[in-house]
Amino acid sequence: MVDQNSNYALQTSEVYVHYGKKMAINNVALNFPKNEVTSLIGPSGCGKSTFLRCLNRMNDVIDICNVKGKFLLNGNVDIYSPDIQVETLREKVGMVFQKPNPFPKTIYENVAYGPKIHGIASSQNELDEIVKDSLHRAGLYEEVKDRMDDIATGLSGGQQQRLCIARAIAIRPEIILMDEPCSALDPIATAKIEDLINELKENYTIIIVTHSMSQASRVSSKTAFFHLGNLVEYGETGKIFTKPDKEQTNDYITGRFG
């Protein structure tokens, strides 16, 4: 049952996802507490990314993908309800992708794009402020302040990913979804992103899919372990990594499979 407790940013239950006839997620229920970082871990193909993409209806783009289940935002908004515009939802639930995907525009335009289409800024000055602030929070401002009009694709991979984070927070979402945000980055860039996540959780609820168990333990307070489309175990990160309840989880974190 869905808990009406509003300490949760997002509550899900009875989630089933099919790709055509193939089942990808099998009856998952998971709640995400506000202003905390939750990691989704598990072997490749376990459905963790698919599940993540359900949370801002990114799967709508894929024709053959069929999502069923209850998703409640802030305890009262059903995100799959026909009354909900997917655009409004995504304004509240931002996303950062596995591979940095800046638009082939200037750095400034990349960040300003979201506020512009949603009409968040009422003046050019305000828009400038939002861009500056978002880049600041993403820890990128100092590096790019002199070249805001350069094409974003000229940045390094780590900078591009932080730009994508800045782009996501520029529309002031409540939740940020991160789909293996560091998998395409080197260790130094990864460390920077992880620091950033730690700072961001003050203001946002973050849900992160990751392959790296050490990353999960470093950044998250809650961890969910997925296997073959099932949610095997969910709990405090420390508990999951030290004494998990399920043997399967233990096998995975100790590296016996996955």
Partner: peptide
């Protein structure tokens, strides 16, 4: 939400 309505139109 008139801005959204406009966008949807």
């Amino acid at each position: 939400m008139s801005s959204l309505e406009k966008r949807l139109a």
